[in-house]
């Protein structure tokens, strides 16, 4: 090689790295470094004045497996995900199909569906707190007028998680609807005309044509819904603080409690690693499994 081309080559490399640098610095500083630091942290014991923090290997993980609150929060999180994801997605598709048609007041309806999404979770929780409150809450007052006995929705371990799931669906469905609506607008109306000519029923058209075409959106929405079901805990601070007796405790809220209420950073790091691994596995699984069934145009 001539020295000239070597120099050009090096310059090319430098140029490339310089282009990557801003993104790389941000990613390393705020994603990769914290992840590694959390992993290292989770292998140490919680220190105090008497006994400084020391390396204990997987000790924190063993303690975690013996921790009933961890298992409770974990189980709750699974139910929370199972309760929120399918329902909010089905609702999102239904709402999108509805407002995709030409009907009077369409703009207003779209806005109405989308409104819960633009509210911050804390505000939503404060609103719903006064829906669920026994005696003076909206739900109980409606029940009272039709002669039914009210219920302590958030104070009963049997109903509290359900109450949170309903609220979350209300908040999320409108957001997912926007994605479906965008996807529906991209689908050519000729497909519908063709299906009509062939005599396909509406249901068949939806099942055989529309839904497969929406699959890329469904994958995107499903992953987002899954992440959200583990990421959304703001409402717990307002509504239940994880209670009663951990009946509504979720993993991320338990991590917050460990770190900032128990001042046990290493245990919080341990729980964080578990949550991280869990989400990574689920996301990868979704990509691998659903990818095969998706028709990308």
């Amino acid at each position: 090689m001539r020295p000239d081309s070597v120099r050009a080559n090096t310059l090319h490399h430098v140029y490339g790295w310089l282009l990557l640098m801003p993104a790389a610095i941000l990613l390393i500083a705020f994603t990769h470094y914290p992840t590694v630091a959390t992993l290292i942290n989770s292998l140490f014991s919680k220190g105090n004045i008497v006994r400084p923090s020391r390396f204990i290997g997987l000790g924190n993980y063993e303690a975690m497996l013996d921790d009933p609150i961890f298992w409770k929060a974990f189980g709750n999180n699974i139910w929370f995900a199972a309760g929120t994801i399918p329902t909010s997605m089905i609702l999102a598709i239904a709402m999108a199909l509805l407002v995709n048609r030409a009907l009077p007041g369409r703009g207003f309806l779209r806005m109405a569906y989308f409104t819960p999404t633009i509210l911050p979770m804390i505000a939503v929780a404060n609103i719903w707190l006064f829906f669920y409150t026994p005696e003076i809450g909206l739900i109980d007052q409606i029940l009272e007028t039709v002669g039914l006995q009210g219920k302590n929705w958030l104070g009963d371990p049997d109903t509290v998680l359900g109450a949170l799931i309903v609220m979350t669906i209300w908040k999320e469905a409108g957001f997912f609807m926007i994605f479906y609506l965008a996807a529906l607008q991209n689908i050519s109306p000729e497909l519908n005309d063709a299906a009509r000519l062939e005599g396909a029923s509406r249901w068949t058209y939806f099942r055989r044509v529309l839904f497969p075409l929406l699959m890329p959106t469904t994958l995107f929405v499903a992953i987002n819904a899954l992440l959200n079901s583990f990421k959304l805990v703001d409402h717990l601070f307002i509504l239940t603080k994880g209670g009663p007796d951990n009946a509504s405790n979720l993993l991320l809220y338990y991590i917050f409690e460990s770190a900032f209420s128990f001042l046990d950073a290493t245990y919080a790091a341990t729980l964080t690693m578990v949550l991280l691994a869990l989400l990574a596995i689920l996301a990868i699984g979704q990509f691998v499994i659903l990818d095969k069934r998706i028709h990308y145009r």
Partner: peptide
């Protein structure tokens, strides 16, 4: 007293509305 957990945050309103 109602059974179950009683919410700290809304209790004052319960009292002010005469519900307790």
């Amino acid at each position: 007293m109602p059974a179950g957990a009683i919410e700290w945050g809304t209790l004052r309103k319960n009292f002010l509305e005469g519900r307790t």
